[in-house]
Computed example of a mutant assay.
Amino acid sequence: MTGGGGEEGELQLLGAWMSPWVIRVKVALQMKGLSYEYIEEDLQHKSDLLLGSNPVHKKVPVLIHDGRPVCESLVVLEYVDEAWAGAGTPLLPADPHDRAVARFWATYVNDTFFPSWRPLFRATTAEQRAEAYEKVLPQVETLERALTECSKGKAFFGGDAVGIVDLALGSFVVWIRAVDEFGGTSLLDEARVPGLAAWAERFMAVDAVEEVMPEAVRIMEHYKGFLAKLAAPAASS
């Protein structure tokens, strides 16, 4: 149930259990104390509901509030924060400049960090992995500096509590760890990015995160299956 700031209404979330973009929305809904119906999508055979709710991108997550869809995870996070402003912890700062800075870094995670990390995620050989790892390190070091700027010495990008930047980056932590474990890399290395390394531990220990975050072993199994399919065409050629 919501703690105020607008009626909850009927809520549905269309998602895929392993998706970082869906995970961040699930955590936000948990933080706000909102009840919703979760509908798992088969992304190989997308439902009419998904295609009709997000006809432009045809992707998850989609939050449907009283029959009206909201698409794109960062947009959904802001919608949830505004529609249920009186519930739970605010996801965006009150100060306009701080809010703009938070939006900038959340967008950086989507538009800069993720495209830089994706080759490491998809690497199937040691050579590919080593090259991709070196290329993503500057973005991780930039996020280390962003944590200092946004947190102002507190526990999270959002200050004392998890905010939109924490959700944007934190939804990748379980995946970053799986890729590192599989490939022998260490993206959140305590020696290189001590702030981010400690932040990741704090984020994963937040109650709302623990409630919805997929188990690491399940993510690893999915990742191994993904890499096997990715490597199969190369092996058969």
Rank of each mutant, 00 (worst) to 15 (best):
V179R: 12
I164E: 10
V101R: 05
T107H: 13
G225Y: 04
L51Q: 11
V165I: 13
D111L: 11
G88T: 12
V162N: 06
R202Q: 13
L43I: 10
H97P: 02
W175K: 06
V193Q: 01
Q128H: 07
W199K: 01
V27R: 03
S47A: 09
S73T: 10
A87Q: 09
L227A: 02
A168M: 05
L51F: 12
T89Y: 00
L49V: 11
A231S: 13
V60Q: 05
N54Q: 10
G15L: 06
D207H: 14
V206D: 10
V101C: 13
K224P: 04
S116E: 03
V60K: 02
F156M: 07
L169K: 02
V206G: 00
K154A: 12
S236Y: 01
G4A: 05
Q44V: 12
K59H: 05
S237Q: 14
K152Y: 06
A200I: 11
I64S: 05
L51C: 12
I176R: 12
S73V: 01
R24S: 03
W105L: 12
V162Q: 02
K58V: 01
Y36L: 05
F182M: 14
A208D: 11
V70T: 08
L196D: 08
P194M: 13
V56Q: 11
R202W: 13
A205F: 08
K32Y: 04
E41K: 04
Y79T: 09
M1Y: 11
R218F: 04
S237V: 10
E41M: 06
T124H: 00
R192I: 00
E72P: 06
R202H: 10
V75P: 09
S236L: 14
D160T: 14
K46Y: 03
A231M: 09
T2H: 03
E7K: 13
R129W: 07
R24L: 03
L29E: 03
I164W: 02
V206N: 08
A102K: 00
K32L: 01
Q12I: 02
A231Q: 13
K32Q: 07
A155K: 10
K32E: 04
D66K: 12
R218V: 00
F157P: 01
A197K: 05
I164G: 08
L92F: 07
F121K: 00
D166P: 12
E221Q: 14
K229T: 07
L77T: 05
V193W: 00
V62G: 12
F172R: 08
S47K: 09
D42H: 06
A232S: 14
Q12Y: 04
N54C: 12
V206S: 08
T107D: 05
D81A: 04
A155C: 11
D98Q: 15
A85P: 00
V22G: 07
T2P: 03
G183P: 00
V25Y: 01
V109Q: 05
F157C: 11
P90A: 00
